[in-house]
Computed example of a mutant assay.
Amino acid sequence: MSNPTARRPVVFIHGLWMHSSSWGAWLDTFDRAGYQTFAPGWPGDAATADATRKNPGALNNRGIGEVTEHYAKFIADLPMPPVVIGHSFGGLIAQKLLGSGSASGCVAINPAQFRGVLTLPLAQVASVLPVLSKPWLRGKTWSHTPESYHRAFANAIPREESDKLFATHGIPAPARPLFQAGLANFAPNSEAGVDTKRARGPLLMLAGDRDRLVPEATVRAEYKIQRKNPGSTELVVFPDRGHSMPVDRGWREIADTALDFLANQNLPAHLED
């Protein structure tokens, strides 16, 4: 018999330059589907995007390892390992949590590359060069302008919509994760490493074919490594979609794809007694 009070937890993990408030529509949708939903911010995030913008120094020098541990501690207080859904660097962190055994399943949306991924398209280099070309930013935060946000993050949607997303959810982000990912293949113990060999739950990887920050080719390279794991691994590429695809006007298609995957992988919202 199904126990309606036993709901599977889902933890949403945002990436760089977007506040956890950007998951609002997903939280509502997954909650209505029966899941127990959470979207904790990164360490240093304030309760709102506006408050975070007013205190960017709280995010200085936050790295991949610290952020992953922050979410691992949050997960440890849940009644069971959750499904983790992450976007961009949140997608990398979600894969780290899946590989460590902290999560029962994972959806990685436009996930930043992990150690071992050698593909680095020119569009991706150009998108992060404003940060990586300034090594003194390594321990500081960096913020997009509305222009750079539309050019690199939200290039597949109209400028008006891009500006609205940026004004509503855009925040400064620590530069350290970009340097860590960029140098991961030269650092054997890089915090950008993911355990892709340990037995794990199912993983869905989602890419947009117009993404400039984490291009389709980068996600495919991650998928080629992850699919060697005995756990189920799937890849879906969305045409004419950019890096903003989980938060822009086409978000529902991405969310429904994630829900369908969880249902097909026997990760339903309600648990059996």
Rank of each mutant, 00 (worst) to 15 (best):
T37A: 06
F38S: 04
F38G: 05
F38K: 01
A39V: 11
P40M: 09
P40Y: 08
G41C: 07
G41R: 09
W42P: 05
W42T: 09
P43R: 03
P43D: 02
G44P: 06
G44N: 09
G44D: 07
G44E: 10
D45F: 15
A47G: 12
T48E: 10
T48M: 10
A49P: 11
D50W: 14
A51P: 06
T52S: 09
K54A: 15
K54C: 11
N55G: 07
L59A: 10
N60E: 12
N61T: 13
N61R: 13
N61D: 15
N61C: 11
R62H: 10
R62Y: 08
R62N: 12
R62D: 05
G63C: 10
G63S: 11
G63T: 07
I64W: 07
I64A: 06
G65Q: 15
G65F: 11
G65A: 15
E66V: 15
V67L: 13
T68I: 09
H70K: 09
H70G: 07
H70M: 08
Y71T: 08
Y71W: 11
Y71P: 04
A72R: 12
A72G: 08
A72Y: 03
A72N: 06
K73C: 13
K73L: 15
K73W: 13
F74I: 12
I75F: 07
D77G: 15
D77A: 12
L78I: 11
L78Q: 03
P79H: 14
P79A: 13
M80F: 12
M80L: 13
M80T: 15
P81M: 07
P82T: 05
V83R: 00
V83Y: 03
V83D: 01
V84L: 03
V84E: 01
I85S: 00
I85N: 01
I85Y: 00
I85F: 02
G86E: 03
H87A: 08
S88A: 06
S88N: 04
G90Y: 09
G91N: 02
G91I: 02
G91R: 00
G91T: 06
L92H: 04
I93W: 01
I93Q: 02
I93S: 03
A94T: 04
Q95S: 03
Q95C: 01
Q95W: 00
Q95D: 00
L97F: 01
L98T: 01
L98R: 00
L98Q: 02
L98A: 03
G99N: 04
G99H: 07
G99E: 03
G99T: 04
G101I: 03
G101P: 01
G101H: 02
S102R: 15
S104M: 08
S104W: 00
G105C: 04
G105Y: 02
G105A: 13
C106W: 04
C106F: 02
V107W: 00
V107A: 06
A108S: 11
A108G: 05
I109K: 00
I109G: 01
I109D: 02
P111W: 02
P111A: 06
Q113Y: 13
F114S: 10
V117N: 10
V117K: 06
L118V: 14
L118N: 13
T119N: 10
T119Q: 11
L120R: 13
P121D: 12
L122M: 14
L122T: 15
A123R: 14
A123P: 06
